[in-house]
Design a protein around this nucleic acid. Sequence first.
DNA 1: AGATGTGAATGAGTTCACAGCT
DNA 2: AGCTGTGAACTCATTCACATCT
Lengths: 222, 222
Amino acid sequence: MSPSRRGPRWSSSGGGADGEISPLTVNRLSLYLRALTHLREQGILRVSSKELARRYRFSAALIRKDLAQFGEFGIRGVGYEVVPLAERIAGLLGLERTHSIVICGVGNLGSALARYWGFNHGNFRVVAGVDTDPQKVGRRLGSFTVGHPRELKRLVRESGAEIGVLAVPESAAAENYAGLIAAGIRAVINFAPLRLESTADVRVKNVDLRINLEEVAFFLSH
Amino acid sequence: MSPSRRGPRWSSSGGGADGEISPLTVNRLSLYLRALTHLREQGILRVSSKELARRYRFSAALIRKDLAQFGEFGIRGVGYEVVPLAERIAGLLGLERTHSIVICGVGNLGSALARYWGFNHGNFRVVAGVDTDPQKVGRRLGSFTVGHPRELKRLVRESGAEIGVLAVPESAAAENYAGLIAAGIRAVINFAPLRLESTADVRVKNVDLRINLEEVAFFLSH
DNA sequence: AGATGTGAATGAGTTCACAGCT
DNA sequence: AGCTGTGAACTCATTCACATCT
């Protein structure tokens, strides 16, 4: 049994205080993992936080704080061993196995995501998709056939999907979200332009593409 | 000349301290604008920060702080006038005119974004796209013909594009980024899985779709 | 010697609470 | 009476600096 199976050793100050890891930390773990993978490909087996920071523009202190939230991975006076650390971070992120995805809405964005994620990403796989448009239901997309949202429960059960993606218009988002939850999905990435809130049971990540345009538009004129 | 043409009246504490508006604030302005548009459609002409917060799950104090960074928009004892405030925020975000977008990489994601943004968004328009794949160059996409990255300078000049979108594989990102900058683009939305840094001249918004999956995967197992 | 792990200090962002205006 | 605009308090995140270990 791995040492952090239940309850990582949260430091009493500085890092994540009360017991919940910050999404900012989790995102950095992903970046560290990529950097370590890159180093491994170059045959580099050990790296210090300073060196990792220098090469990939991180903060050395933050690397150490982030990692220390999950245990002691480093060797004092030496640094971190690339391969074991990469494996450990991959484990923390749940990447030791494949995660299956169901997509709601297979229009422009939904079908692009299905192809993008379906092919490129070893640890994630799009295994099902639904749409209310009768023209789309029954169509083949990658390795599955597009279903109707009313079939979500069955599709999720049969495909073992864990992550739901909302790529539907705003007007259909709430309904499809409810459908995903009813089907037992506990993690949702929402591309519809409305804020869905995470709850204790369901983790929601809002990805608002329009807002990104407006953000850069703001800075263009200021 | 509008009162905040040069240098909004930054409060000496609390809000944005030194002279740069936080992206968090800018993103919330977008959300406020949507909420106000929604209210306007319902014929509501005045709203208090408290009411706006209640309806759309914002923080009333933060609405006031955010807006106060740009001037005094409210009427004490009353609230805000929906239509003028919406127009003012739209002005701040630079949405009083159309912004043109050029897309680098018209594969799955790039072409989906072209269609998604090309049709749905009044204030943004995809006016050009490039790809190194000879199969894609010359193809019609929406209202333009796909070009080659070496034509970027001309395409940007002729189309008047201001915002560049990187939807190319990681290996081609740096090169295409350089091409966009050389062509005079000053705002970039980067979908490639590597961090590009904003500079004084160029605003970069990184949108890492893979990292979102890893984030929810983390919370699935914790 | 040299790097980790971590308390303390700093900085950024949000909420509180209320003076001041309508 | 009621709401904005805003200093002060507070919370969250990052950086500093160093005791601790190899």
